[in-house]
């Protein structure tokens, strides 16, 4: 039966290429939650988001998104992917990229409402001055904002952010978090991040995963588990971005 809440995962297991990527994961997100998902590289965070989006079918378990199957709930989910692997010379401008987020079905033309919503979303992310700019002629942080606008342009109930701050400089990061802080008033947010230091200031709950769910609850209670989570796989952690997770933690 569909559960209440925006996201409800029950005993979800995902196997990819013979390897268990997510194991027996149970997780729920309510109407106005801001949940940070934390875990080392390869722990299945992106996979979790793709399960929520219905891009990956779980091998076991149930997923309900606003009371629907993931595929039927897509219209209500905004998604900011981890990697923007698009062709930077693609002939499209910022406005049209965001307008694509308003797609509503075969043969539906984009309406004036869609255009207005696009302008609003671009204003929200502070990119109104770049409507006509070809998408590749923007900085990394600006592209990030445009894609965020594309994610929120249809007023989703749920916003999924996959490591949104990994590729932007610290100054842009704090304004990015302010932006997310405004957005979370209007929609539930799930953010995958390594940057616990900053994120814990804003988030309501955290989920620590590494294949399995290690912790799901308030931020304060989670800090102990983050230590646990990052302690064993130090090598894995040290390879990638999240040096700073160790750093911050050591200082405490």
């Amino acid at each position: 039966m569909p559960n209440s809440g925006v996201v409800s995962l029950k005993n979800v297991t995902v196997v990819r290429g013979g390897e268990t990527v997510l194991e027996d994961l149970t997780l729920s997100v309510d109407e106005s939650d801001f949940l940070a998902v934390i875990g080392p590289n390869g722990s299945g965070k992106t996979t979790l988001l793709k399960v929520i989006l219905g891009l990956i079918e779980p091998d076991a378990g149930d997923v309900w998104i606003v009371g629907h199957e993931p595929k039927d709930a897509r219209m209500r989910i905004g998604y900011l992917p981890q990697k923007f692997d698009f062709d930077h010379s693609f002939p499209i401008n910022v406005f049209d990229v965001v307008l694509m987020g308003r797609y509503s079905g075969l043969f539906h033309r984009y309406t004036k409402d869609d255009r207005d919503a696009t302008e609003m979303a671009l204003a929200t992310v502070g990119m109104s001055d770049f409507l006509d700019r070809q998408i590749g002629k923007l900085s990394g942080g600006q592209i990030q904002r445009v894609f965020l606008a594309r994610a929120i342009v249809k007023d989703p109930r749920l916003l999924l952010l996959d490591e949104p701050t990994a590729s932007i400089d610290p100054e842009m990061q704090s304004s990015f978090y302010e932006l997310i802080n405004e957005l979370k008033e209007k929609m539930a947010v799930i953010m995958v991040t390594h940057d616990i230091g900053v994120s814990s200031v804003h988030v309501d709950k955290i989920a620590c995963i590494n294949k399995k769910l290690f912790y799901h609850g308030s931020v304060e209670g989670g800090l102990k588990h983050i230590e646990e989570l990052y302690e064993c796989p130090v090598e894995i952690v040290a390879h990638g971005v999240p040096h700073r997770v160790m750093g911050r933690h050591d200082h405490k």
Binding site: R74, Y79, F86, D96, M100, G101, Y103, L106, F107
Partner: peptide, 23 residues
């Protein structure tokens, strides 16, 4: 003429197109 919106979405970002409900 009928499907240029879908083809544009598909060409630009296939994953996002799929997430938006483009077949």
């Amino acid at each position: 003429a009928l499907l240029h919106r879908e083809f544009a979405a598909l060409s630009f970002d296939e994953e996002f197109a799929q997430v938006s409900g483009v077949p």
